[in-house]
Amino acid sequence: MELSVLRAYLPAYLQAAEATLAIAGLGLVGSTLLGLVIAVAQYFRWPGARPVTAVYVELSRNTPLVVQLFFLYYGLPKLGLVWGSGVCAVVGLTFLGGSYMAEACRSGLEAVEPHQSQSALALGLGPGPALRHVVLPQALALATPAFTANAIFLIKETSVVSIIAYPDLVYVAKDYIGNDYNTSEALALLVAFYLVILLPVSLGAAAWERRLRHAGFGD
Protein backbone atom coordinates (compact mmCIF):
# COMPACT_ATOMS: atom_id res chain seq x y z
CA MET A 1 0.00 0.00 0.00
CA GLU A 2 1.46 3.32 -0.99
CA LEU A 3 0.63 6.35 1.06
CA SER A 4 1.23 8.73 -1.82
CA VAL A 5 -1.45 6.93 -3.82
CA LEU A 6 -3.88 7.10 -0.91
CA ARG A 7 -3.22 10.80 -0.56
CA ALA A 8 -3.71 11.40 -4.26
CA TYR A 9 -7.04 9.56 -4.23
CA LEU A 10 -8.39 11.19 -1.08
CA PRO A 11 -10.04 14.27 -2.64
CA ALA A 12 -12.01 12.15 -5.11
CA TYR A 13 -13.20 9.90 -2.28
CA LEU A 14 -14.24 12.85 -0.16
CA GLN A 15 -16.32 14.18 -3.02
CA ALA A 16 -17.81 10.74 -3.58
CA ALA A 17 -18.59 10.39 0.12
CA GLU A 18 -20.58 13.59 -0.13
CA ALA A 19 -22.49 12.16 -3.07
CA THR A 20 -23.14 8.95 -1.15
CA LEU A 21 -24.36 10.86 1.89
CA ALA A 22 -26.56 13.10 -0.25
CA ILE A 23 -28.60 10.24 -1.70
CA ALA A 24 -28.54 8.33 1.58
CA GLY A 25 -29.97 11.39 3.36
CA LEU A 26 -32.60 12.12 0.75
CA GLY A 27 -33.48 8.43 0.50
CA LEU A 28 -33.89 8.29 4.27
CA VAL A 29 -36.15 11.32 4.33
CA GLY A 30 -38.15 9.98 1.40
CA SER A 31 -38.61 6.51 2.82
CA THR A 32 -39.47 7.82 6.28
CA LEU A 33 -42.20 10.06 4.86
CA LEU A 34 -43.52 7.26 2.67
CA GLY A 35 -43.38 4.80 5.54
CA LEU A 36 -45.16 7.20 7.86
CA VAL A 37 -47.96 7.83 5.37
CA ILE A 38 -48.44 4.10 4.83
CA ALA A 39 -48.41 3.30 8.53
CA VAL A 40 -50.89 6.07 9.35
CA ALA A 41 -53.11 5.06 6.43
CA GLN A 42 -53.18 1.49 7.68
CA TYR A 43 -53.60 2.52 11.30
CA PHE A 44 -56.69 4.59 10.56
CA ARG A 45 -57.93 2.11 7.94
CA TRP A 46 -58.21 4.69 5.18
CA PRO A 47 -60.47 3.30 2.46
CA GLY A 48 -58.50 1.51 -0.22
CA ALA A 49 -55.26 1.88 1.68
CA ARG A 50 -54.92 -1.80 2.54
CA PRO A 51 -54.74 -3.39 -0.92
CA VAL A 52 -52.64 -0.60 -2.39
CA THR A 53 -50.10 -0.57 0.39
CA ALA A 54 -50.02 -4.37 0.52
CA VAL A 55 -49.07 -4.61 -3.16
CA TYR A 56 -46.44 -1.92 -2.74
CA VAL A 57 -44.92 -3.50 0.36
CA GLU A 58 -44.66 -6.92 -1.28
CA LEU A 59 -43.07 -5.52 -4.45
CA SER A 60 -40.65 -3.42 -2.48
CA ARG A 61 -39.60 -6.22 -0.16
CA ASN A 62 -39.29 -9.02 -2.65
CA THR A 63 -37.15 -7.39 -5.32
CA PRO A 64 -33.51 -6.27 -5.09
CA LEU A 65 -32.57 -2.61 -5.28
CA VAL A 66 -30.19 -3.35 -8.14
CA VAL A 67 -33.06 -4.57 -10.28
CA GLN A 68 -35.28 -1.68 -9.22
CA LEU A 69 -32.56 0.77 -10.24
CA PHE A 70 -31.91 -0.90 -13.59
CA PHE A 71 -35.61 -0.70 -14.33
CA LEU A 72 -35.86 2.96 -13.31
CA TYR A 73 -32.75 4.08 -15.15
CA TYR A 74 -32.61 1.94 -18.29
CA GLY A 75 -36.21 0.72 -18.58
CA LEU A 76 -38.35 3.78 -17.93
CA PRO A 77 -36.77 5.96 -20.66
CA LYS A 78 -38.42 3.59 -23.13
CA LEU A 79 -41.70 4.95 -21.79
CA GLY A 80 -40.42 8.48 -22.17
CA LEU A 81 -39.38 8.97 -18.55
CA VAL A 82 -35.74 9.98 -18.38
CA TRP A 83 -34.63 10.60 -14.81
CA GLY A 84 -31.05 11.43 -13.90
CA SER A 85 -29.01 8.95 -11.90
CA GLY A 86 -29.38 10.94 -8.67
CA VAL A 87 -33.15 11.07 -9.01
CA CYS A 88 -33.32 7.36 -9.83
CA ALA A 89 -31.15 6.58 -6.82
CA VAL A 90 -33.34 8.55 -4.42
CA VAL A 91 -36.55 7.17 -5.92
CA GLY A 92 -35.13 3.64 -5.74
CA LEU A 93 -34.01 4.04 -2.13
CA THR A 94 -37.38 5.53 -1.20
CA PHE A 95 -39.23 2.69 -2.91
CA LEU A 96 -37.06 0.16 -1.12
CA GLY A 97 -36.91 1.85 2.28
CA GLY A 98 -40.56 2.94 2.44
CA SER A 99 -41.81 -0.55 3.22
CA TYR A 100 -39.24 -1.07 5.96
CA MET A 101 -40.01 2.32 7.47
CA ALA A 102 -43.73 1.58 7.29
CA GLU A 103 -43.15 -1.58 9.29
CA ALA A 104 -41.10 0.33 11.87
CA CYS A 105 -43.78 3.01 12.20
CA ARG A 106 -46.57 0.42 12.33
CA SER A 107 -45.01 -1.46 15.19
CA GLY A 108 -44.44 1.87 16.92
CA LEU A 109 -48.03 2.96 16.43
CA GLU A 110 -49.42 -0.35 17.61
CA ALA A 111 -47.26 -0.22 20.69
CA VAL A 112 -48.91 3.02 21.75
CA GLU A 113 -51.77 1.87 23.89
CA PRO A 114 -55.26 2.70 22.60
CA HIS A 115 -56.21 4.55 25.76
CA GLN A 116 -53.62 7.18 24.88
CA SER A 117 -55.53 8.33 21.82
CA GLN A 118 -58.86 7.77 23.55
CA SER A 119 -57.77 10.03 26.40
CA ALA A 120 -56.51 12.64 23.99
CA LEU A 121 -59.83 12.63 22.17
CA ALA A 122 -61.70 12.75 25.48
CA LEU A 123 -59.67 15.81 26.41
CA GLY A 124 -61.11 17.52 23.36
CA LEU A 125 -58.23 17.22 20.89
CA GLY A 126 -59.25 16.62 17.28
CA PRO A 127 -58.04 13.45 15.55
CA GLY A 128 -55.28 15.41 13.78
CA PRO A 129 -53.79 17.07 16.85
CA ALA A 130 -54.25 13.86 18.85
CA LEU A 131 -52.17 12.04 16.27
CA ARG A 132 -49.56 14.76 16.02
CA HIS A 133 -49.14 15.63 19.71
CA VAL A 134 -49.92 12.39 21.52
CA VAL A 135 -49.70 9.27 19.41
CA LEU A 136 -46.91 10.00 16.91
CA PRO A 137 -44.32 11.28 19.39
CA GLN A 138 -44.67 8.12 21.45
CA ALA A 139 -44.81 5.89 18.39
CA LEU A 140 -41.66 7.42 16.93
CA ALA A 141 -39.76 7.00 20.19
CA LEU A 142 -40.78 3.35 20.28
CA ALA A 143 -39.84 2.90 16.62
CA THR A 144 -36.38 4.41 17.00
CA PRO A 145 -34.38 1.15 17.16
CA ALA A 146 -36.08 -0.18 14.06
CA PHE A 147 -35.61 3.19 12.42
CA THR A 148 -31.86 3.29 13.00
CA ALA A 149 -31.50 -0.31 11.82
CA ASN A 150 -33.28 0.71 8.63
CA ALA A 151 -31.06 3.76 8.29
CA ILE A 152 -27.93 1.62 8.42
CA PHE A 153 -29.51 -0.78 5.95
CA LEU A 154 -30.31 2.05 3.53
CA ILE A 155 -26.87 3.64 3.75
CA LYS A 156 -25.35 0.25 2.96
CA GLU A 157 -27.75 -0.22 0.08
CA THR A 158 -26.54 3.02 -1.56
CA SER A 159 -23.36 1.13 -2.46
CA VAL A 160 -24.99 -0.21 -5.63
CA VAL A 161 -25.88 3.10 -7.29
CA SER A 162 -22.73 3.12 -9.41
CA ILE A 163 -24.55 0.76 -11.78
CA ILE A 164 -26.59 3.75 -12.91
CA ALA A 165 -23.47 5.94 -13.15
CA TYR A 166 -24.09 7.81 -9.90
CA PRO A 167 -20.63 8.96 -8.76
CA ASP A 168 -20.63 7.42 -5.27
CA LEU A 169 -17.76 5.77 -3.35
CA VAL A 170 -17.93 2.49 -5.24
CA TYR A 171 -17.93 4.36 -8.55
CA VAL A 172 -14.70 6.10 -7.64
CA ALA A 173 -13.12 2.91 -6.35
CA LYS A 174 -13.97 1.02 -9.53
CA ASP A 175 -12.53 3.90 -11.50
CA TYR A 176 -9.15 3.64 -9.82
CA ILE A 177 -9.14 -0.13 -10.05
CA GLY A 178 -9.93 -0.01 -13.76
CA ASN A 179 -7.57 2.78 -14.77
CA ASP A 180 -4.62 2.76 -12.44
CA TYR A 181 -4.80 -0.88 -11.35
CA ASN A 182 -4.15 0.27 -7.77
CA THR A 183 -6.65 -2.26 -6.52
CA SER A 184 -5.45 -2.42 -2.94
CA GLU A 185 -5.31 1.30 -2.34
CA ALA A 186 -8.69 1.85 -3.95
CA LEU A 187 -10.31 -0.89 -1.85
CA ALA A 188 -8.64 0.19 1.38
CA LEU A 189 -10.03 3.70 0.98
CA LEU A 190 -13.43 2.30 0.08
CA VAL A 191 -13.55 0.22 3.26
CA ALA A 192 -12.23 3.09 5.36
CA PHE A 193 -14.83 5.54 4.09
CA TYR A 194 -17.74 3.20 4.67
CA LEU A 195 -16.47 2.52 8.16
CA VAL A 196 -16.19 6.23 8.91
CA ILE A 197 -19.75 6.73 7.73
CA LEU A 198 -21.36 3.62 9.19
CA LEU A 199 -19.52 2.99 12.44
CA PRO A 200 -20.78 6.08 14.26
CA VAL A 201 -24.35 5.34 13.18
CA SER A 202 -24.04 1.71 14.20
CA LEU A 203 -22.44 2.45 17.56
CA GLY A 204 -24.84 5.30 18.24
CA ALA A 205 -27.79 3.06 17.47
CA ALA A 206 -26.50 0.35 19.80
CA ALA A 207 -26.01 2.85 22.61
CA TRP A 208 -29.44 4.36 22.05
CA GLU A 209 -31.09 0.94 22.10
CA ARG A 210 -29.40 0.06 25.38
CA ARG A 211 -30.71 3.29 26.89
CA LEU A 212 -34.21 2.50 25.73
CA ARG A 213 -34.01 -1.00 27.11
CA HIS A 214 -32.84 0.18 30.47
CA ALA A 215 -35.67 2.65 30.56
CA GLY A 216 -38.21 -0.14 30.20
CA PHE A 217 -39.72 -2.31 32.91
CA GLY A 218 -37.85 -5.42 33.98
CA ASP A 219 -36.75 -7.58 31.11
Partner: peptide, 13 residues
Protein backbone atom coordinates in the same frame (compact mmCIF):
# COMPACT_ATOMS: atom_id res chain seq x y z
CA UNK B 1 -21.34 -2.95 9.19
CA UNK B 2 -19.90 -3.01 5.66
CA UNK B 3 -22.03 -3.12 2.53
CA UNK B 4 -22.03 -6.61 1.02
CA UNK B 5 -20.82 -5.14 -2.25
CA UNK B 6 -17.70 -3.84 -0.55
CA UNK B 7 -17.03 -7.28 0.92
CA UNK B 8 -17.49 -8.79 -2.53
CA UNK B 9 -14.96 -6.37 -3.99
CA UNK B 10 -12.44 -7.01 -1.24
CA UNK B 11 -12.69 -10.75 -1.67
CA UNK B 12 -12.95 -10.83 -5.42
CA UNK B 13 -10.25 -8.35 -6.33
Amino acid sequence: VLPQLVLLFVFYF
